[in-house]
């Protein structure tokens, strides 16, 4: 198996791990959202990679072209991107509200405040 030939999937895996790690390890709520974003983006790239066929043309009808990339994953990912944007927006909105309520966006400080409460 051609290890380097699958470089796009390596990128996907790297981004996925980096994103998940950020979500888990960071205590800053905004950084968590950023990690989540990276994690989602990796999946988008994965989908788009599936759709590409070596040597194929973009899926626009043209004379003389017989091999097209699969357009469906792109369409799917368009939907997924919208979902991702909505998630990010909602997450950030929540962070704003949390900062209003607690005066901080560090997870540990929030926890310690709730414990005193």
């Amino acid at each position: 198996m051609d290890v380097l030939g699958h470089y796009n999937y390596w990128i996907v895996i790297f981004l996925m791990m980096a994103g998940l790690y950020t979500v888990i390890s960071r205590g800053n709520l905004v950084k968590k959202i950023a990690g989540l974003n990276i994690f989602q983006t990796s999946v988008f790239i994965m989908f788009i990679s599936f759709g590409y066929i070596s040597g194929s043309a973009p899926p626009i009808l043209e004379d003389g072209v017989t091999l097209y990339s699969n357009p469906l994953p792109h369409v799917l990912i368009l939907t997924a991107i919208v979902v991702g944007v909505a998630t990010t927006a909602l997450g950030l909105a929540l962070v704003v509200r949390i900062r209003e309520a607690y005066g901080t966006i560090e997870e540990e400080e929030i926890h310690s405040q709730d414990r005193d409460f």
Binding site: L20, V23, L29, K32, L36, F39, Q40, V43, V83, T87, L90, G91, L94, V95, R97, I98, A101, Y102, I110, D114
Partner: peptide
Amino acid sequence: DRRALTAAYQYLIMGTIGAT
């Protein structure tokens, strides 16, 4: 309760990971 916010945030993170 203001803890509703953190609860929703936590749910958002976990839920999004699950959905992804």
